[in-house]
Design a protein around this nucleic acid. Structure first.
Length: 577
RNA sequence: GCGGUCGUAGUUAAGUCGGUUAUAACGCCGGCCUGUCACGCCGGAGGCCGCCGGUUCGAGUCCGGUCGACCGCGCCA
């Protein structure tokens, strides 16, 4: 037997017991006739004391990170207790020592802030010694909670293929050449979307999967080419049903891993979110909403504002930062303005309320009426930052400014969680470059086709989609699907996908819809981001056991790599320069 | 594809205005130490200054290129 207890287990209750521990040597201190050794594993650390000269000689030969087994008895540390580790009240007096496995010296010092490249090359050591270990445990606890919860509600865990058909829409596909079918390729799934809908046609009713998804796009701190979704689909259900189940699932996760009870998640329309937060994924932990100033400046003598106020396609938005009037130096505002301009806005104006009086470079343009309207919106000693211009540009720029100001003013804490459902998304968005309307969501998302056919302005048509947003992150999203074959055909036509194109790409789904597709809807959560949120980390690689670098390679396995000519020949592939 | 930051012993860093033998800490090796816990003390080994080229009497240092890590833009539901 290798161990009777793990390295985090022993307490005063165990004193005088004979125990066997196995683990890695995290520290070794020779002290005259004593040898202290600390053993660790993923559960904790325990101090071992060697007192007999014979066993000291034996144990003294081992080095840090060797794997050893120690048998001995538990002793109260008395005056030498420590709270450095959970087992710090006791120690094990070694009677028997076995070296199970040697270790080379560690290639880096885990206590120091080491270059990411080195930690990624020795990822297994980083898992053993860093916070990554705890993130992986957290990740397991989340997926276990999800599985248990969904299982209780009758959801079936069904795997969908990893070798699938390429559908060159959205992200780039990872391609896998076929050996058996000459000159043909599989694609790795960007998501199991079509398969889960067909599982509904197959009568599986309630499906879920912890699904690996692949997208061949460039990486970010929060984006990896392979990532995981908690993928859910259910039949005979509408948005109320699926959102209720998803919300309770997330509630269960937060209760299980954080001990937090999440109150009912409020609903917010897309239009409200954009208008008040400048984002479709608003961080509602703090207020600082975007204020519409068009009515204030309708008759302004400041031309830029007057024009924007009277132009349908333009808007004037402000945010109020409280109690900072004297903090806002010229330089600081210049710096803030730069950020806003990099988001496309022309410029940034500011108005301070100094003891009830307006102070601003623009003050000379403002009428008394305007000043009164403004002063009402700005608390004493507060500052309003404002910008005017094209609606979508200003909303985005001011939305980002709101986030930056909140971060700067420390309005957000990682221990707070604010949830909101975003609903009533527009079904279409205007593509200025190509002068046409594009579907915002995938083409299987349901919307009112009759309304859309009648609408002059497609921007008012709403889709039956919904997103769950936590602390400004879109954590999950989904939609009610089109289950009627005729409607799906018409929708393809309406959104500009030809019959041939639809057949070529989605014929198997379209076929399926002709054989009695039940009404169904679904949703997918980004597992990696959910874990990040609960772990309080900004880097997605922290929550993935073996992540890729920003150039999409694995420094440990050295993937991707070249292959032999024989392998390529079998696949009928010739490489070009 | 583009922009930014970085690259010096195994690791983390210092290295002045371009000038003698490239420093330190941790780790490693050897020795000492009666309660250590990032133990302490003494000694030692360890370098293609990422790589290629250029400027110069002379380059870790200046210039150009290239490779890699990270952050962002484009891209990405």
């Amino acid at each position: 037997m290798f161990r009777t207890h793990d390295c985090g287990e022993l307490r005063l209750d165990n004193v005088n017991e004979s125990v066997t521990l196995s683990g890695w040597v995290s520290n070794k201190r020779e002290m005259g006739p004593f040898l202290f050794m600390v053993l660790y594993d993923r559960y904790g650390e325990t101090q071992i004391v060697f007192e007999d000269s014979k066993i000291i000689e034996e144990a003294g030969k081992c080095s840090l990170e060797d794997v050893v087994q120690v048998t001995g008895f538990v002793r109260d540390r008395g005056d030498n207790r420590t709270d450095r580790y959970k087992t710090g009240d006791v120690e094990v007096i070694a009677e028997e020592f076995i070296l199970l496995s040697k270790s080379k010296p560690m290639p880096y010092d885990h206590r120091k802030d080491t270059a990411e490249a080195i930690k990624l090359k020795y990822r297994y050591l980083d898992i053993r010694k860093s916070e990554v270990k705890n993130y992986l445990i957290l990740r397991h606890n989340i997926t276990r909670t999800v599985s248990n919860y969904l299982d209780k509600l009758g959801f079936l865990n069904i795997e969908t293929p990893i070798l699938t058909k390429s559908t060159p829409e959205g992200a780039r596909d990872f391609l896998v050449p076929s050996r058996i079918t000459k000159h043909s390729f599989y694609a790795l799934p960007q998501s199991p979307q079509l398969f889960k809908q067909l599982l509904m046609v197959g009568g599986m009713d309630r499906y879920y999967q912890i699904a690996k998804c692949f997208r061949d796009e460039d990486l970010r701190a929060d984006r990896q080419p392979e990532f995981t979704q908690i993928d859910i689909e259910m039949s005979f259900a509408d948005e109320d049903d699926i959102m209720g189940i998803a919300e309770n699932m997330i509630r269960e996760v937060f209760r299980e891993v954080k001990g937090l009870d999440i109150p009912e998640v409020p609903l917010m329309t897309y239009a409200y979110a954009m208008n008040n937060y400048g984002s479709d994924a608003p961080d509602t932990r703090y207020d600082m909403k975007l204020i519409t100033l068009d009515p204030v400046f309708e008759n302004s003598s400041f031309e830029a504002f007057k024009n924007a106020a009277n132009d349908e396609s333009q808007i004037i938005k402000g945010i109020v930062v409280e109690e900072t009037a004297e903090e806002f130096s010229k330089n600081k505002i210049k710096r803030i303005e730069k950020d806003v301009q990099s988001d496309g806005a022309q410029g940034l104006a500011f108005i301070k309320n100094i003891n009830g009086e307006i102070e601003s470079p623009l003050a000379k343009f403002f009428s008394d009426e305007e000043k009164n309207a403004l002063i009402e919106k700005i608390p004493v000693n507060g500052t309003m930052l404002l910008a005017a211009g094209k609606k979508n540009v200003i909303l985005k720029a001011m939305g980002n400014l709101r986030k930056r100001m909140a971060a700067e003013k420390n309005l957000v804490s990682n221990d707070d969680y604010a949830f909101v459902w975003i609903t009533e998304f527009p079904a279409f968005e205007y593509d200025e470059e190509n002068d046409k309307w594009n579907a915002v969501h995938h083409p299987f998302t349901d919307f009112d086709l009759n309304e859309a056919l009648a609408a002059k302005d497609r921007s008012t048509v709403l889709s039956r989609a919904y997103d769950l947003v936590i602390n400004g992150h879109e954590v999950g999203g989904g939609s009610v699907r089109i289950h009627d074959f005729e409607k799906q055909k018409e929708v393809f036509k309406f959104i500009g996908i030809s019959e041939e194109e639809a057949k070529e790409k989605f014929s198997f789904l379209l076929d399926g819809l002709t054989f009695g597709a039940p009404p169904h809807c679904g949703l997918a959560f980004g597992l990696d981001r959910l874990v990040m949120l609960l772990a309080g980390t900004e880097a997605i690689r922290d929550v993935i056991a073996f992540p890729k670098t920003t150039s999409a390679s694995c420094l440990m396995s050295e993937a991707p790599s070249g292959v032999t000519k024989a392998q390529l020949d079998e696949l009928y592939i010739k490489l070009s320069e």
